[in-house]
Write a protein that binds this DNA or RNA. Structure first.
Lengths: 213, 213
DNA sequence: CAGTCTTCTCAGCGTCGTCTCAGCGCCGGA
DNA sequence: TCCGGCGCTGAGACGACGCTGAGAAGACTG
């Protein structure tokens, strides 16, 4: 059934990764930046319940749609209380499944506008373009990834280890590399415009000012 | 039925506002900062479909759970495509309704970590920002950690050894360092505003007044 | 294969935060 | 009223933190 779903969803234009048991699925959900997870309760090795529970315990809020053969209402309630965002009982209609997936993704898309903005600083992830005061700014891939991450978390203080984990995808690298790249970014998006969007919070990390500095 | 739901949800601890037709509901949803909206499709004056559509058109992303007497699957798909976050068909189980409301609210809460408040003093752990009377206050990491701990235990008397254990992560340090840092904090969040939130309880420890002093 | 761009390391330096210490004042008890 | 202990504070030493320029190594391009 999973393979059939994968084919159907791919035909609709979704990019689909398939995991064959709970542990594989958990691993994939941790790694990939998915728009939505479809999770069957009956899985080998690790049940869907536990995958969901584990992800939420790790503060991973990726939207989850649970599938189950059980149809008692308390099972549904349990699934939702574990942190699933929606629940479908087998046999389910394919049309409903797709509509709910779209709803889950749109919900997230509503919160994540296509172009990230902070004052007069804007970044378009799809087009890989950054502008300040309407002027295009050229960034290297690493600089771009760093700025994108900071802009997605604008106004929050982000620690160097969080940055290393999400932008460099490592955790035991010398944090100095972050300082170096923050320096590069400042010379490109702040200094030429006399601004101060990239703020240092000594002992805590960095914050990108939501108003662009 | 709406009144019955209101009583039931209030019994569960929710604060519930009730609107008797679509226009009234739309007006309320625009004004209030609701955690979630329960929306019946069949409403006098303005249908639930249109309320939902209108809210989304105004970029209002409050979570919406739709209720309907219709049970064709295409209706459900339509509702979700209009921007609702979930959909329930009458007759529905009360248990399921509550579980889904909780899921919708939890989802949103996960994205917005709590802000600690004590009177006109507020501390935002994620943004690492402290404000008094609306003025931003700059704190060093140690000062911030100390204030955060005291605010999490507002109105309690906290001993110096507890503070050392949780803020300094040691137990055999000279407690004088706590006195020093309480002094620093007072100069930043109390003295400039003529307040007294950080109270000394001689022989026992310190208490942060829940009303901000 | 040369030239350029990008990434990352390293060491030096200035600044800021942390903590210690000693003296003093205040509070409560006898 | 005197005394002892508790808490407060200013000064200062020390260390950690973050920034920067220089440059090496690797990747990409024509």
């Amino acid at each position: 059934m999973a393979a059939a779903l994968q084919r159907g969803l791919q035909a609709e234009g979704f990019a689909v990764d398939l995991a064959h048991d709970g542990e594989e699925g958990l691993y994939a959900a941790r790694q990939g930046d998915y728009d939505v997870v479809v999770l069957d309760i009956m899985l080998p090795r690790l049940s869907g319940y536990n995958v969901c529970k584990q992800l939420r315990a790790e503060e991973n809020w990726v939207p989850i749609l649970m599938l189950s053969a059980k149809d008692g209402e308390y099972d549904m309630a349990d699934g939702l209380d574990l942190g699933a965002d929606d629940y479908l009982t087998k046999p389910f209609s394919y049309v409903v499944l797709v509509a709910r997936l779209r709803a889950l993704m749109r919900r997230d898309a509503g919160r994540r506008p296509a172009v990230l903005v902070a004052g007069d600083l804007s970044l378009d992830p799809a087009r890989r373009k950054v502008e300040r005061e309407g002027n295009a700014v050229e960034l290297t891939p690493r600089e771009f990834a760093l700025l994108e991450y900071l802009m997605r978390r604008r106004d929050e203080v982000v620690s160097k280890s969080e940055i290393l984990e999400h932008v460099w995808d490592t955790f035991d690298t010398d944090p100095n590399v972050v300082e170096v790249y923050v320096g590069y970014l400042r010379r490109k998006i702040d200094a030429p415009f006399g601004r101060n969007a990239l703020q240092t919070v000594r002992g805590a990390g960095y914050r990108l000012a939501g108003d662009g500095g």
